[in-house]
């Protein structure tokens, strides 16, 4: 016998969850109070949450944030384009404000499936902190910041810093802001997914290129508009490879894609 009779043959399922306290805050401050009181887990669209349950997540309480109106919608002001963390992928793509960043809605519309896009949120995509999810890649390219809030503190941090962020003091992602200075535009290449994806933002005379794989946190490089694609890609760190793809391949294929994407953005401009 390979397994003892008591060993589980399948992963945990939602049926293994114990009944737990449930909160349904309608404001950010209610959500923070509920988190503080219960030590619970934030629940938004739930599309990643249940993958977590199968991997062992067992929340003490649920903070179901879907009714927090101030975490929804898109607006534009002098600081940039603001997007609520509770926007679903569908809602984001349909928002006219996204036209302020040519290429963003098109790239975003490629994510996931019809059924998932209707339910999955921007906040959940980022806060699941899974390398294979793509909004971190797009938003890092666009130099976006995440507004993290806690009972006593509010911090605006670059999206790429979310990977390492300590969520003790600021557990809730309220919104994302993309600065609109120098007219950013985005090109995104995911045809090689899951091997790698590449996002490129052009902002005035500057480029930001992001490379990501299924297993690695996104890497980015800033360069002037006339930079050489091969040289940009050769900046990939020595340890940027995973079991599915070598660094040499990423540099080679990444350079080819990057040249194409620079041309694409030239056309858009």
């Amino acid at each position: 016998m390979f397994h003892s009779p008591s060993a589980r043959q399948v992963a945990r399922t939602p049926a293994d969850l114990a009944p737990m306290p449930l909160y349904r805050p309608e404001t950010i401050s209610e959500a923070l109070a509920a988190l503080h009181e219960s030590g619970g887990t934030i629940y938004a669209g739930g599309t990643d949450f249940f993958a977590g349950v199968r991997q062992g997540l067992s929340p003490k309480a649920l903070i179901w944030v879907a009714a927090i109106a101030e975490m929804k919608g898109c607006t534009i002001d002098s600081n940039g384009l603001h997007m609520g963390a509770l926007n679903t992928h569908d809602e984001s793509v349909a928002a006219p404000e996204l036209d302020a960043v040519p290429g963003l809605a098109e790239a975003w519309s490629k994510i996931a499936t019809v059924r998932i896009r209707h339910q999955a949120t921007l906040g959940g995509n980022l806060m699941a902190r899974r390398e294979r999810y793509e909004l971190s890649i797009l938003l890092t390219a666009l130099g976006a910041t995440a507004r993290m809030v806690g009972p006593e503190l509010q911090v605006d941090m670059p999206v790429q810093d979310l990977w390492q962020a300590d969520l003790e003091k600021t557990p809730l992602l309220a919104s994302i802001t993309i600065p609109l200075d120098n007219a950013p535009m985005l090109a995104y290449e995911r045809s090689m997914r899951p091997t790698f994806t590449q996002a490129l933002c052009r902002r005035g005379q500057a480029l930001r290129c992001v490379m990501a794989t299924e297993w690695l946190q996104p890497w980015f490089k800033d360069a002037p508009l006339d930079a050489d694609a091969g040289q940009m890609m050769s900046g990939l760190p020595a340890d940027f490879h995973d079991p599915a793809v070598s660094r040499a391949h990423l540099v080679r294929a990444g350079s080819v894609f990057l040249k194409r994407q620079i041309a694409r953005l030239e056309d858009l401009a």
């Binding site: 399922t13 939602p14 449930l22 629940y43 739930g46 599309t47 990643d48 949450f49 249940f50 993958a51 349950v53 199968r54 649920l62 179901w64 879907a66 019809v114 059924r115 998932i116 209707h118 339910q119």
Partner: peptide, 26 residues
Amino acid sequence: GRTVCGACSVLVDGFPRAACSTFAFE
């Protein structure tokens, strides 16, 4: 049991949703 396959799809307000990954309270 984790939102991927859609075998458990039901319609909620007319739109497909994975019932395995939707709490009853929702």
